[in-house]
Amino acid sequence: MAYMTLKDIDVRYDKKKQVLKGLNLEVKEGELVSLLGPSGCGKTTTLRVVAGFIEPESGVFSLDGEDLTKIPVHKRNFGIVFQSYALFPHLNVYDNVAFGLKMRKLDKQQIDQKVKNILEVCGLSEFEKRFPQQMSGGQRQRVALARALVIEPKLLLLDEPLSNLDAKLRINMRMEIKRIQKKLGITTLFVTHDQEECFSISDKVAVMNQGVIEQFDTPENIYQRPETEFVARFIGFENFLTLNREGNVYKTQAGTVFTVESDRNGDSLAGTIRPEDIRIAGESEDRNVLTGTVGVRTFLGKSYQYEVLTAEGKFLVSRPAEEVYEEGSTIRLYLPESKLILVNK
């Protein structure tokens, strides 16, 4: 049974540009779900609809069986962490965190107990009296998280919370967020454009494109089995070739024959493969083979990346640094049938 449901959500800005087009999403209780996509795909808009900052033109948002579409933000009881943290500059850490509890008119002792407790969970006990301007990005981030969590929200919403932190801190913080989220068992929506961040933290990922969810699945499935060309491109499948089904095999326009392990329905299919999954064909292989000329070579440290020009277009191929191919030489590429994934175009 879904805990949080978005059903046929339409959002339009200025009556013209449609940002969300009949978006559907179901999240189970206690899950951490990421909304992943390029900028402008509508992921932040989706979060703002859930938060209550935007009222959708049509569609229903419900939580735990209750329709909340028209309930104003301050009555929803959701915790939100903003990209800019949005701490109250005129209040110290303690008062920032206590703000939501004061709004709920709890008595002083209860407030004190809850604030101290959450500060402890977030590792902030020693910073009670500090003001936001006196803290580092990572500490502010934790204050924002504590402030959102202390009200015991029914839903936690995170809007690119890690994008203002440096790389190392980002990895620590996402582990921290996951730890706290699991500990409190709170249903969470997480907006990000960073796929590594998203895969590492999420139970499920919704990849968004132009106002709709292209694929909603576990991180593993998204990474290994993208369903559409857009998803594949977004998560690093660089090579695409149009394939037509002929019996048990697939053929390209030029007539090269491919076999593929996975299956997919649909009229317009493409095969896709990551640069690092392409191998060099041996003498015996005759299927799933493309012949091409080596073009630009780029050194990536552990490997070289080559542009290979084939009859099916340009292919990006990664090969270990020990294996070197000169520009202009001819190579035969082998696309293993377990790694060649079918997607809808």
Partner: peptide
């Protein structure tokens, strides 16, 4: 002034008018 600060106040259960007085004005 970062208006997401005001939005944060709303999300914490503060009505719009009250948020103006408690969060916008002091800043």
């Amino acid at each position: 002034f970062d208006f997401s600060t005001e939005e944060a106040a709303w999300s914490l259960g503060c009505g719009k008018l009250r948020a103006f007085f408690r969060v916008v004005l002091p800043n």
